[in-house]
C-alpha cells in the first residue's frame, strides 16, 4: 500500500511539472500582458519599468525557473489586475465553486443512481425508456441554453427563485458558504441544477449499463437460485458492482466541475473560480491563468489518487495488482 502511494505521488509530481511547462509555454504564447495593463499612450519608460518589475524581460527559460522557484515557496505570483497574491485570490473564490459543484454532484447522484437502477432493472418498461430519453437530453442540450431556460422559467416567469448571484453566506470552517441558510439555498438551486444535468444524464446511463450487465450475469442467476430476494440481489450484487465505475466518473466529474463550472457560473453570475478565470483570460492576467491551471492539474491528480484508493477498496482484484 505504501509503495503504491509513493509510486502514485511520484507520478503526480511528474504530471504537475510537465503541466507547468505546458501551461507556462501556452500562456506565454498568448500575448504581451503589458499591452492590456497599461494605456497604450503611456510613455516608454513606464512601460519598460513595468516589464522589468514583472520579470518579463528575462529569457523564457529563466522566467520559468523564477516561477517554479517561487511556486515551491508557496508563491504563485501576484495578479496584474487585482494586485493581490494569486493564491489568496483563487482561494477566496474557491468555496463558492466548491459548494456549487458539490450540490450539483449531490443532485446528480441522488437522482441518477436510482433512475439508472430502475432503467437497468426493467429495461423494457415505458418508464425506463422515458428515463433514457431524458438522459440523452441531459447531456446533449447545451448547458448555457438550459441555464437560460431555468432562469426564464423559475426566476422570470414564476418568480420563485432568484435569477443569479450568490445571496447571503455564512462562515463555516473558514469558508463562506450559502447552503447553510434557506435564502442562500434558493440562490444555489438553479445553478446547481443546471450544472447537475450533464452529470445526471451520464450517471443514469452508466448505472443502467452496469445494472443490465450485472443482472444478466451468472452470479445473479446463482444468487436467485439460492433464494435471495430481488432487493438483496440489487442491494448486494448490483450496487457493489456498479459502484466501481460510478466512483471513477464521480471523481472525474467532481474535478471537472470544480475546474470548469465556467458556463454555469457565467450564466448565473455566480462568483466562483470559473468566473475568475474567464475574467482573467479576457484581460490576459497571466499569473492568475498559470496558477489556476496548475491548481486544476493538482486538483485532478489529487482526486484521481483518492479515486484509485477507493477503487482498490471496492474491487479486490485491483488491490492484488497494486500490492504486487
Amino acid at each position: 500500500m505504501i509503495g503504491f502511494l509513493i509510486q502514485r505521488i511520484l507520478q503526480a509530481l511528474l504530471v504537475i511539472v510537465a503541466m507547468s511547462v505546458i501551461v507556462f509555454l501556452g500562456v506565454y504564447a498568448i500575448g504581451n500582458p503589458i499591452d492590456v495593463m497599461i494605456d497604450p499612450a503611456s510613455d516608454q519608460a513606464l512601460r519598460e519599468a513595468l516589464i522589468h518589475r514583472y520579470g518579463l524581460d528575462l529569457p523564457l527559460i529563466q522566467q520559468y525557473f523564477v516561477f517554479m522557484n517561487n511556486m515551491l515557496h508557496g508563491d504563485l505570483g501576484e495578479s496584474f489586475i487585482y494586485r493581490l497574491p494569486v493564491l489568496s485570490l483563487i482561494f477566496s473564490r474557491f468555496p463558492a465553486t466548491l459548494e456549487l459543484a458539490l450540490c450539483a454532484m449531490l443532485i446528480a447522484t441522488c437522482l441518477g443512481i436510482p433512475l439508472g437502477l430502475w432503467a437497468g432493472y426493467k429495461p423494457d418498461a415505458l418508464s425506463s425508456k422515458a428515463i433514457m430519453a431524458f438522459s440523452v437530453l441531459g447531456f446533449s442540450v447545451p448547458t448555457f441554453w438550459v441555464g437560460l431556460l431555468l432562469i426564464m422559467t423559475f426566476a422570470v416567469e414564476l418568480g420563485w427563485l432568484p435569477s443569479g448571484g450568490r445571496g447571503p453566506t455564512a462562515n463555516v470552517l473558514g469558508m463562506n458558504l450559502s447552503v447553510t441558510s434557506l435564502e442562500g439555498l434558493s440562490y444555489i438551486i438553479l445553478p446547481a441544477l443546471n450544472l447537475a444535468l450533464f452529470k445526471l444524464g451520464l450517471l443514469i446511463r452508466l448505472t443502467r449499463a452496469g445494472t443490465v450487465e450485472v443482472m444478466s450475469s451468472d452470479y445473479v442467476r446463482f444468487a436467485r437460485a439460492q433464494g435471495l430476494s430481488e432487493g438483496k440481489v440489487v442491494g448486494l450484487h448490483v450496487l457493489k458492482n456498479i459502484s466501481i465505475p460510478i466512483v471513477t466518473v464521480f471523481g472525474l466529474e467532481l474535478g471537472s466541475t470544480l475546474a470548469f463550472a465556467v458556463v454555469t457560473e457565467t450564466v448565473f453570475n455566480w462568483p466562483g473560480m470559473g468566473k475568475l478565470i474567464i475574467d482573467s483570460i479576457t484581460v490576459l492576467d497571466r499569473p492568475v491563468m498559470v496558477a489556476y491551471l496548475i491548481l486544476v492539474v493538482f486538483l485532478f491528480v489529487l482526486i484521481n489518487l483518492a479515486v484509485d484508493l477507493i477503487y482498490g477498496q471496492l474491487d479486490p482484484r485491483i488491490r492484488v495488482k497494486a500490492s504486487s
Binding site: D218, R221, F222, Q226, G227, K240, N241, R317
Partner: peptide, 20 residues
C-alpha cells in the same frame, strides 16, 4: 429456491460475484 431445491452451476468461474 435454495431451501427445497438448489442448483450448482456449470461454470465455477462465473457463479460467484468477483467483488464480494
Amino acid at each position: 429456491r435454495g431451501a427445497q431445491i438448489a442448483m450448482v452451476f456449470q461454470d465455477p468461474m462465473m457463479t460467484l460475484n468477483p467483488v464480494l
